[in-house]
Design a protein around this nucleic acid. Structure first.
Lengths: 244, 244
DNA sequence: CCTCAATATTGAGTGTACTCAATTTTGAGT
DNA sequence: ACTCAAAATTGAGTACACTCAATATTGAGG
């Protein structure tokens, strides 16, 4: 492991085949510093905002040299993604536990869900984003920007994995489908059949990230942000259901 | 005129009421420098790319001091928007002259257009973006980023005006409507009636900007970018037409 | 216990966008 | 022609993200 490694990347153990055989003093020290940097960055980003926080401040708060911070996150933006990935790590189960369509959810008639029901479920799926934007508008804006336009780097990729998982959830709702629990996206690539659900899911995520930012700049015309997002979702739901 | 002024903002003439009465040596000198800066920035951005171009290089190429560049564009990003606004200025008539729906366009049956026809027209409307991304991928990515996430500044607002005009064109196609030539967006705000067309237009523009960037990073899965964009448009067209 | 290659840490140094106090230029009033 | 306030221009200076050569630390092998 030469330089920056993703939080995953469980190190190849030296002799034994077990995963965490003997962490070793060095790895522990590094992990400790990593944790301190993470905590410091998180706190400072929340308090002062992303732009206003200096890398030197993060280093000082974490009690390491500036260079060490860059060892863990090659870029200020990557540091933000590192914090974001850590924060979103806990939400995974919550999202997985979200209500599945097709199981007796109160609402529509038979097997098919009413469009409004689907839209509501999707709105629930994105609600963490909306909440984050309400609580920490400035850093969240940067997260959105980085997700959509950032350079490919390890921490960002972790965040992207979360985003893609969310897209899959949304796509499942758009399909109104019963194969919601399938994760094998690789094997299940029905390349010939154009997947409107996947397109719609991406559109929703993109649209939400952008519109949230726009609302922050006061550029959302008259309506509330929730209304804007709901309209957006409704439109995509309608479009996806129209595609058979 | 104290600091940076938008390209418009025709100066309040000193005595007479005419618009361009006597430009004055000073204004002419300034306009001249502005033109040199614009040309230099455009050339350098195209040749070297946005990131690789230094503000000092722009200043040198334009034969002004660095500070003077910042007088005209407060930020490197603003300089990019200034160049973009200038480039897009000429496309206005071309866009306005784009085929109007409802006039005898070859295609569908009666008054209503076939969905595929509408999608094709919208694809035509966004084709300049796509072409720009093909020709100058790096700077265009930055333009997209700046449009969606940039800070509010005068040159950016000009670009946003172009984008909004494009959205209006798209919205008109989505409506399949006959009031395509109405520009009085302010007066014609039917606030109560939720406008699916406007939502759809925004979604399309946002989606196109983001997906173009994603394709640049090689993240578009298997399919060609045109296919991705077409799916996106088709979905929104379907969704908008479903909304009455 | 000793050695040494691999790795982590450090912080002074670098590059570059942006600032601002000082200077120059302009043109209206006299 | 002269004066003077307003505005434009200038470029040395600042702030801050990021680099990298030097140093310190670790742990496996002898």
């Amino acid at each position: 492991m030469t330089t920056i490694e993703g939080a995953a990347a469980a190190g190849t153990s030296p002799t034994t085949g077990r995963e965490p055989p003997a962490p070793g003093r060095r790895e522990r020290a590094k992990a400790d510093k990593r944790a301190r940097i993470l905590a410091a960055a998180r706190a400072l980003f929340e308090e002062r905002g992303f732009e206003a926080t200096l890398m030197s401040e993060v280093a000082q708060a974490a009690d390491v040299a500036q260079g060490t911070v860059f060892q863990h996150a090659a870029t200020k933006a990557e540091l933000l993604m590192m914090v974001t990935a850590a924060l979103w790590g806990g939400h995974e189960e919550a999202q997985a536990a979200a209500p599945r369509p097709g199981r007796g959810v109160p609402g529509a008639s038979g097997t098919r869900l009413a469009a409004g029901e689907t839209a509501g479920q999707i709105a629930d799926l994105i609600s963490p984003f909306v909440a984050a934007m309400r609580r920490w508008p400035e850093p969240t804006t940067w997260v959105a920007r980085e997700i959509l336009f950032g350079a490919d780097m390890p921490h960002r990729q972790q965040v992207l994995a979360h985003v893609e998982a969310l897209e899959d959830q949304i796509a499942a709702r758009l399909r109104g489908a019963e194969e919601a629990d399938r994760e094998d996206r690789q094997a299940a690539q029905p390349d010939s059949r154009t997947d409107a659900a996947a397109t719609g899911a991406r559109l929703i995520v993109t649209g939400v990230l952008v519109e949230l930012n726009r609302s922050r700049q006061g550029r959302i015309d008259g309506a509330d942000i929730d209304v804007v997002l709901r309209r957006l979702i409704d439109l995509v739901v309608a479009g996806a259901s129209a595609a058979r």
